[in-house]
Amino acid sequence: MRARLDQVIALLKGDQGADRIVPPSGFTVRLTLFTSAAMAFLTIFALALSLAAGRLGTSWGDELARASTIRISAPPEQMQEQVASVLRLLEQTPGVETARALSADEQRELLEPWFGPALPVEQLPVPQLIDVSETSDGYDADSLRLRLQAEAPGAVLDEHTRWRRPLVAAASRLRLLGWVSILLIGAATGAMVTLAAHAALAANAQVIAVLRLVGATDGYIAQAFVRRFTLRTLSGALAGTLAGMAALLLMPSAGDVEGLLTGLRFEGWQWLLPLVVPPLAALVAYIATSAAARRVLGGLA
């Protein structure tokens, strides 16, 4: 008898009672858990995509700002002269920050992967490279080409990173899409929780009627539902987040090669960002369930 009384006392006290007034319902619990886990998983990927796109856009953008090359192929006796005139020309070109002829050592280093370290660059008709770094405004490539043609016929402007320019724009668009996806996932989570809460409130109409009869306020009744859905969403989202992070950790790494596919991961402090997802999902669930409960209970007699 004593133990039984203690049991009742435990129920009477605190939140436990408020939580227990809503009957457990296995099926919808699992659905809510599953959906919030799936949503969190997708959020992690959208987040990783956004961050990777942002990273790629930045690093490509940095390279764009400084990298183009002028290659001068000329007979050895004219080489010095053409190099000098190209450098002079570049100095006067608006939009060019610095221009510098690569030294023989640097050229050898560039060719090393193909010809080995012992290549006598000086004795070969290797074209001379000039590294051009542009200002943020950039230069007018077409007019530079025309002038190069006039001054140094053997010079070819190689804008080897210019092709990336549309890609940088695409990367920034991709980042935007990633964030939009996260917002949509958040909204979908809210909609899902609202539907689930409505279903739960409708299914528990008798429970609510009994509670109202014995003097429970709407706030007390709502709290039981809100707590339940918030905790479910929180634990589901936590599982989904951890699964998403694990999946990203297991992505094969491509070393230093920078690409969107291989860059789909978090770096450094960014690994903390996904941990914000479960509390945010719980917050969304809290707001959605509170609103649903207020609406449903307010409409009752």
């Binding site: 006392i9 009477l12 009672g17 227990r20 007034i21 009957p23 457990p24 009994v210 003097g215 429970a216």
Partner: peptide, 30 residues
């Protein structure tokens, strides 16, 4: 009508729970 998933004692004590008046000395009362 009752909350069918709670015991009879819990149902009888329900008004105490929902009004925040559930205290140990109510157990004797119950």
């Amino acid at each position: 009508q009752f909350l069918d998933h709670l015991s009879v004692a819990e149902n009888v004590a329900l008004p105490l729970s929902v009004s925040g008046q559930a205290t140990p000395d109510q157990a004797e009362n119950l």
